[in-house]
Amino acid sequence: MPARPQHTRLVIGIGNPLRGDDGVGALLAEQAGGRSVQQLTPELAAELGELEAVLFIDAWLAPAGGAPQLVEVIPAGAGAPDTHRLEPAQLLAISQALYGRAPAACLLQVPAHAFEHGNTLSAQLQAALPQAQALMQGWLAHHA
């Protein structure tokens, strides 16, 4: 019987913590004991192939009044991926193609408003943070 992976779930925060609201993914991933990356790269596919579930967290240019949302991500490779920046669906498709499996995946999109240099989150994002944290905690509880 094959060995079960040590970690069956992972939270990946996407974004640059030195670009204002873009750092929300790193902040939330740290709170969940996950990891952060400035962008998704093909090298992550091998790790995903060992997981049961993954939660991606990213800043989102939402319409006015947009709230944090959790959406399912299905492996999809719309055309040839840009090897410098991948979307979660493309990374899952690479994992599926190379390793024969991809984990169940969701994307937590947090509405972002300011991307200036610095590590301060906008007031609008700070107001949405409790809802984003609740969505993340719900996902973690479901994938315990």
Rank of each mutant, 00 (worst) to 15 (best):
M1P: 09
A3T: 00
L10K: 08
L10F: 04
V11N: 05
I12S: 06
G13P: 09
I14Y: 14
G15S: 12
G15F: 15
P17L: 11
L18N: 05
L18I: 01
R19Y: 03
D21C: 04
D22A: 12
G25T: 01
G25K: 08
A26N: 06
L27H: 15
L28F: 14
L28M: 08
L28I: 06
A29K: 07
E30L: 07
E30H: 13
E30I: 01
Q31G: 03
Q31T: 00
A32I: 04
A32W: 06
G34K: 09
R35Y: 03
R35L: 15
R35F: 07
V37I: 00
V37K: 11
V37R: 14
Q38K: 11
Q39I: 01
L40H: 09
L40F: 13
T41M: 08
T41Y: 05
P42I: 02
P42Q: 07
E43Q: 14
E43C: 01
L44A: 07
A46I: 00
A46H: 11
E47P: 09
E47T: 09
L48K: 10
E50A: 14
E50C: 09
E52W: 03
D58E: 04
D58K: 10
D58Q: 03
L61C: 10
G65P: 12
A67Q: 15
L70H: 10
L70V: 00
V71S: 11
E72F: 03
V73K: 01
I74K: 15
I74W: 14
I74Q: 12
I74F: 15
P75F: 12
A76I: 00
A76V: 01
A76W: 15
G77I: 01
A78Y: 12
G79H: 05
G79R: 04
A80T: 07
D82Y: 04
T83Q: 10
H84K: 07
H84E: 02
R85K: 14
R85F: 15
L86F: 14
L86P: 08
L86H: 10
P88M: 10
P88K: 10
A89T: 00
A89I: 02
Q90W: 11
L91T: 00
L91A: 12
L91C: 08
L92S: 06
L92G: 06
I94P: 03
S95A: 15
Q96I: 00
A97V: 04
A97L: 13
L98C: 11
G100T: 01
G100S: 04
G100Q: 04
G100N: 05
A102T: 00
P103L: 09
A104F: 12
A105P: 09
P111I: 02
A112N: 03
H113R: 11
H113W: 15
F115K: 05
E116W: 10
H117Q: 10
G118W: 12
T120H: 11
T120S: 08
L121Q: 06
S122P: 04
S122M: 06
S122H: 11
A123N: 03
A123V: 05
Q124A: 14
L125N: 07
L125A: 05
A128Q: 15
L129G: 11
L129Y: 08
P130C: 03
A132W: 08
A132Q: 04
A134P: 05
M136A: 07
Q137Y: 11
G138M: 05
G138C: 10
G138V: 02
W139R: 12
L140Q: 12
L140G: 02
A141S: 15
H142M: 13
H143R: 13
A144W: 11
A144S: 13
A144I: 01
